[in-house]
């Protein structure tokens, strides 16, 4: 695994990656905002305010923030069902996200989609997908369209470890490698497909080495180290944007919450979860780096944390004050 490259000091890496102090602060705030969104989602569910299910990404925040920072805001995003973090990173309006989560007319999808189907086409966010791997082949069409339209954006196709065993994963990698399409494949490996450990369903690991069969360069990285994500994804994005074809990045990470609301965590130990929380947490690691290297004082980071809490609280206020869709509109939007 490519991790914290050659143990280079944090400040040197940050400087080499041209990360300004403002950017570091902003990324810290986004990491906290994602975590707060997920904690709030869990709380709202416990309070009985959530009608449907949800797939929380707490523990995986550095992947979302790192990808977003290392790519362009107008690059296309194809997201998976555990996608809140990627939307927040892509500057989604959190009020509209929360409203969608609570099924309100004011939500991104007017309450028709819910947590699993948040999309914002105005910001090239092509939506999350409730079918594991279902969005992966869409990247082919996005890549082809970008080539035909002679544009310089790339398509970022994000999926989980579970999706890598779907047929469309292999079909898509084959065509993307064959046609040198501008696609960044990101496999966000959080170790479990629902309850199934990745080792129990993969003939050979890491997953990323499968890309080799399709002539696609690949990296297997520590997805909980923000700067590693930024560095790998940044160079991959440059490579893709220069017309060299796709790159595959597998980011090793971990989810703290269960798969969805029905999960009682019977397939993993409390110790395992606690070890990840205490020793590998992406936010804690970034925070410690910032503090140990005196980039920020503790109280400056507390300001970010408090801002994140406020953003989420006001999003809940907005969402709860929003109306349900009118039942009479149930058959709208079936056809364009």
């Amino acid at each position: 695994m490519e991790t914290e490259k050659n143990q280079e000091p944090f400040l040197n890496r940050a400087e080499r990656l041209k990360l300004s102090k403002d950017e570091l602060r902003e990324m810290y705030k986004t990491l906290c905002t994602i975590r707060q969104f997920e904690l709030m989602a869990d709380k709202l569910y416990a309070l009985g305010k959530v009608h449907g299910t949800m797939h929380l990404s707490a523990g995986q925040e550095a992947v979302a923030v790192g990808i977003r920072h290392a790519t362009r805001l107008d690059d296309y995003l194809i997201n998976h069902h555990r996608g809140h973090g990627h939307f927040i990173s892509k500057n989604a309006d959190i009020n509209l996200m929360m409203a969608e989560f609570l099924g309100k007319e004011a939500g991104y999808c007017k309450g028709r989609g819910g947590s699993m189907h948040i999309a914002d086409f105005s910001s090239n966010n092509l939506g999350a997908n409730g079918i594991v791997g279902g969005g992966i082949p869409h990247s082919l069409g996005v890549g082809l369209a970008l080539q035909m339209q002679k544009r310089d954006q790339i398509c970022i196709a994000i999926f989980g470890d579970g999706a890598s065993n779907e047929g469309v994963f292999h079909e898509t990698l084959n065509m993307a490698g064959l046609w040198k399409l501008p696609i960044l494949f990101v496999c966000e490996n959080n170790k479990y497909g629902m309850s199934m450990a990745v080792e129990r369903v993969s003939a050979k690991l890491p997953i990323a080495q499968r890309a080799e069969a399709y002539d696609i360069p690949w990296h297997y990285i520590d997805g909980n180290d923000l700067l590693t994500v930024i560095e790998t994804v940044g160079s991959a994005a440059d490579y893709i944007r220069s017309g060299n074809g796709p790159v595959f990045v597998e980011a090793q990470t971990y989810r703290y919450f269960g798969h969805s609301k029905s999960d009682r965590n019977l397939y993993r130990s409390k110790d395992e979860i606690e070890t990840w929380r205490l020793t590998k947490d992406p936010i804690l690691r970034f925070k410690n780096n910032l503090l140990e290297n005196e980039v920020f004082k503790a109280e400056e980071l507390v300001v970010c944390e408090e801002e994140a809490v406020k953003i989420i609280e006001s999003a809940v206020e907005f969402a709860e004050a929003s109306a349900d869709p009118d039942a009479a509109t149930v058959t709208e939007y079936v056809y364009a």
Binding site: Y76, I78, F121, L126, G134, I136, P137, H138, S139, L140, G141, V142, G143, L144, A145, L146, Q147, M148, Q149, C155, G167, V168, E171, T172, N174, M175, L178
Partner: peptide, 28 residues
């Protein structure tokens, strides 16, 4: 061959590719 795109035998991804292109304003 940029507009008559011949694919491998991958029916799900043929349709998937059409979906992605359609989302970007193409008419596959």
């Amino acid at each position: 061959d940029k507009r008559i795109i011949e694919t491998p035998i991958s029916e799900p991804s043929i349709i998937g590719a059409a979906v992605g292109a359609a989302l970007l304003g193409m008419r596959p």
